[in-house]
């Protein structure tokens, strides 16, 4: 039986066009579409896999931002037992140090054996959230994880190194793990099941103390990349583009 907490956050959907705010210091959040951090989604999958294998409970904690309720109901449909929304002023974006304090404060109340979170998120600027939470709670941290086995008082984890090398590590529990990939791809749940959860499941709200930003940085300036040399764009309709590609393939010796 394991008490597993997954800490997750919503991040900008990179499919959308991103814009910088008028001050030039951050993303323009007015039109920003948020989705769950994809590595957090893997962490949720890993948490549910562990629960299915070992028994126990999965609690998912996320800061209150646009779309967080739908995301939490989706995790309920996947098998999470408890969903908690951190109530606070997260809409404008906060640094991960502030967020980690809030996560740590709430996670602590659930006496977790294991805290799982995504190894990083696309909007991290002051490091990923997992190691910060670990340190605030005095727990060990290992990141880049793609497999977890629970044993009495410890976990055996697969830590990824470049080129597919794995370091098999042992860590004492409770611990925080930064998940790179779950043992299975994140499961799909039917929208009808999510709708049903919206009727039956409940999202608890956690009040947190004032946000503590210390240690986090804020960027002096944000801007869109200015490439020194951009690709030469191939224009035309599909037939024309195909023909041009073929002549490039020939030039490159591929045909």
């Amino acid at each position: 039986m394991a008490n597993i907490v997954a800490i997750v956050k919503m991040v900008p959907d990179l499919v959308e066009e991103l814009e910088i705010n008028d001050e030039g210091t951050g993303l323009d959040r007015d039109w920003l579409r948020l989705i769950i951090n994809e590595f957090d989604n893997h962490a949720i999958e890993q948490a549910i896999l562990l629960k299915e294998r070992e028994g126990g409970e999965v609690t998912v904690i996320a800061p209150e931002t646009e779309g967080v309720e739908d995301m939490l109901f989706t995790t309920a449909a996947k098998g999470a037992d408890r969903m908690i929304k951190l109530a606070g002023d997260f809409e404008e974006g906060v640094n991960n140090h502030a967020l980690a304090h809030a996560f740590a404060e709430t996670a602590k109340n659930h006496q977790p054996d294991l805290i799982l979170t995504g190894v990083q998120a696309n909007d991290d600027l002051d490091g990923p959230v997992g190691p910060l939470v670990a340190e605030y709670l005095g727990m060990p941290y290992i990141g880049y994880i793609s497999g977890v086995t629970l044993e009495e008082g410890r976990a055996i984890v697969r830590k990824e190194y470049p080129g597919g090398l794995i370091g098999e590590m042992e860590v004492t529990l409770p611990a925080v793990l930064g998940i790179q990939a779950g043992e299975e791809p994140p499961r799909y749940v039917a929208i009808s099941k999510v709708r049903q959860m919206m009727k039956t499941a409940e999202i608890a709200e956690a009040e947190i103390s004032e946000l503590d930003f210390s240690g986090g940085i804020s960027a002096k300036r944000m801007y869109l990349p200015e490439a020194a040399e951009r690709a030469e764009m191939i224009e035309g309709d599909e037939e024309e583009i195909a023909a041009k590609l073929i002549s490039i393939f020939k030039e490159a010796g591929a045909l």
């Binding site: 140090h97 980690a100 190894v119 990083q120 991290d124 600027l125 002051d126 490091g127 990923p128 997992g130 190691p131 910060l132 670990a134 340190e135 605030y136 941290y141 290992i142 990141g143 880049y144 930064g178 210390s214 240690g215 986090g216 940085i217």
Partner: peptide, 17 residues
Amino acid sequence: ADVASVLSARLSLPLVS
């Protein structure tokens, strides 16, 4: 990454990633 972030919290030092 396993070292830098933990030390940012442990030593209260700023981290730019």
